[in-house]
Amino acid sequence: MQLAKHRRRPRLELKDPPHPDNLHALYRETEDPVERARWHALWLLATGHPIPQVAKILGYSERWVRTVIHRYNQGGLRAMADLRHRNKGKPPLLPPEVQEAFRQALQAPHPRDGLWTIRNAAEWLSERLGREVDPRRAWSWMRRLGFAPLRPRPRHRERDLEAGEEFKKSSS
């Protein structure tokens, strides 16, 4: 019985790398930190540093460095620039036009009872967005827009109004 020999992967190298000075200039001029790391990796590789050392210098994994090399080999310098900002993130929970409408609504008295409570704000947002909005989320949007929810001071249900007036008169 004959055993199969272990075959090593071919060494991964940059194909037709530009002059290291050009890569260094791209690395130094770029303001985007992610793109800067890519150019830095290419510059180090072009100057003869091995992949593990580049990964250690930059604080990335060897896999990340290999991905950068593969992308460069497939698309050249243009491929490195096209990688910028692919992940735009989630859209905001409150679109800008709804934010502005909410700000305008908060500046006027609430239509039902004149006070913007957290529950009133959550109902208003639920109607505009077409989905349920948690009162805590409404509160955070009110705070983000610079408003505080208003509610009357709590009053005791069994208070004596006459005794309160009498107290005010006697204490002044």
Rank of each mutant, 00 (worst) to 15 (best):
P135M: 03
R153M: 12
L129N: 08
T117E: 04
S140E: 13
S140Y: 15
L3Q: 15
L115E: 11
L42R: 01
E13H: 07
R137K: 12
W139L: 11
T117K: 10
M142D: 03
R128Y: 10
M142L: 02
P111R: 15
L26K: 06
L115N: 08
H156M: 12
Y27C: 11
L12Y: 06
W64Y: 07
E97Y: 13
D160R: 03
H40T: 06
E13D: 13
L14F: 04
L145S: 02
A122Q: 04
F147A: 03
Y72D: 00
I51P: 01
L106W: 00
W139D: 03
W124V: 02
S140H: 08
R151H: 06
R112V: 13
R36V: 04
M80W: 01
P18N: 03
M1Y: 15
R131P: 06
G164Y: 14
P96E: 10
Y60F: 14
L106I: 01
P111F: 10
R7I: 07
H70T: 08
A81C: 13
I57L: 09
R136T: 11
E162L: 11
T30E: 05
E62D: 12
I118V: 11
D134N: 12
A138C: 02
L145E: 06
V68W: 00
R8H: 09
R159W: 15
V68Y: 00
F102C: 01
P96N: 05
L77E: 14
R143K: 13
Q74E: 07
K90P: 04
L129F: 02
P10L: 06
M142V: 01
H110Y: 07
Q107S: 08
D113M: 11
R8D: 14
R28S: 07
L77M: 09
N87E: 08
R63I: 12
E127N: 15
D134K: 04
H24T: 15
E162D: 13
Q74H: 14
A79Y: 02
L150T: 08
H110S: 10
A55L: 01
E29P: 04
E166P: 05
K5D: 13
N22S: 12
Y27F: 14
G114A: 06
A121C: 03
R119Q: 13
A121S: 11
T30R: 04
L14A: 02
T67G: 15
G59A: 04
S140C: 07
Y60D: 10
I57C: 15
T67S: 11
R131F: 12
L129R: 12
G114I: 07
H49T: 13
R112M: 09
R143I: 06
